[in-house]
């Protein structure tokens, strides 16, 4: 399987809009939503039955047994995460605890114990030979990188004989979930936005992805909202030897498509026409040996 990861740095540039169109255009039989913090791809993929859900266990969380606790305060003094409070007897602040186990190690009476914590839910759809892996992190939880890795692994094992294109929708930012999504993919497509914010964020995600040695292509969404900035992005790609995969216009019909559970490739609209070209350039580069891109 050839894995194409869609990223953007900045949020809301159109990752899911482009990813969902690519899935339709390629008739991909394997795809995943790695934006575990705010997943949306399932809203336009229209699977009917949930075939398999599984709890995701993140890092364990400490608990203090109030009966055993002697309120000596050793846990509070040594917790680096400010996760222990002594208001009304020593106890653990669930959302601050990172599960390091220091309190468990130091507690003289065995009152602090690490307990497993369900930090999210993994869902795998498998209908008519189409595999879609997604997940939702529970509110306020960390360790999303681990969950992203599991989302990708579930897609790969459910579609292990598949040799075609796999489309992976990524998350915004450059941190933990993005870094976890980057490992092992064959190419990254950055959906950029022609704003100065978008350009700044694009440069940071490209530096992040470049450290993984993955070939990078860039497309611009809503390019006509600021032609000067679109020009700057094209120039940046030329200067840094990155594949420029094309541009998609601002299109109110895109909003209509998404709101009726369709992709922009499903309806006749200007953004749909443009995404076809972006798709062709990207896939051609992905499948050819010469996908040269560097900085």
């Amino acid at each position: 399987m050839k894995q194409l990861l869609i990223l953007s740095g900045k949020g809301g540039t159109g990752k899911t809009t482009v990813a969902s169109a690519f899935i339709k255009l390629s008739s991909a039989r394997a795809y995943a939503d790695c934006d575990v913090d705010a997943p949306n791809l399932h809203l336009v993929m229209n699977f009917k039955n949930e075939s398999e859900t599984e709890d995701y266990f993140g890092m364990p969380k400490a608990q203090i047994d109030r009966v055993k606790c002697i309120d000596c305060g050793v846990c509070l003094e040594n917790c680096r995460f400010g996760a222990i409070s002594d208001e009304g007897g020593h106890h653990v602040e669930l959302f601050s605890c990172e599960g390091c186990g220091v309190c468990e190690e130091l507690c003289p009476v065995g009152a602090a114990v690490l307990m497993p914590d369900i930090a999210g839910e993994l869902t795998l759809f498998n209908e008519d030979g189409n595999v879609f892996s997604t997940a939702q992190l529970k509110m306020g939880r960390g360790t999303s990188g681990l969950l992203v890795t599991q989302v990708k692994n579930r897609m790969k094992s459910a579609a292990d004989t598949y040799t075609g294109l796999a489309v992976i929708d990524g998350s915004p930012g450059i941190g933990c979930p993005v870094i976890a999504s980057l490992s092992g993919v064959d190419m990254v497509l950055i959906v950029a936005e022609p704003s100065l914010s978008g350009i700044s964020d694009m440069e940071r995600i490209i530096k992040t992805a470049y450290n993984f040695g993955v070939p990078i292509a860039v497309c611009v969404n809503k390019h006509d909202t600021n032609p000067d900035n679109t020009g700057k992005i094209e120039e940046y790609c030329r200067e840094n030897n990155l594949l420029f995969a094309g541009k998609i216009p601002f299109d109110p019909k895109a909003v209509e498509a998404i709101n009726s559970g369709m992709t922009i490739a499903d309806i006749d609209c200007p953004s749909g026409d443009a995404v076809r070209e972006v798709y062709q350039i990207t896939v051609e580069a992905l499948l050819s040996e010469n996908k040269g891109s560097g900085i």
Partner: peptide, 25 residues
């Protein structure tokens, strides 16, 4: 963006939270 640990850390000390939403599903 999001609702993970990093967002929680940011709103802990806020008196009021303003949520910004766009008109899509």
């Amino acid at each position: 963006p999001g609702s993970a640990c990093i967002v929680m850390e940011s709103i802990k000390d806020a008196d009021y939270c303003l949520l910004v939403a766009e008109p899509t599903v």
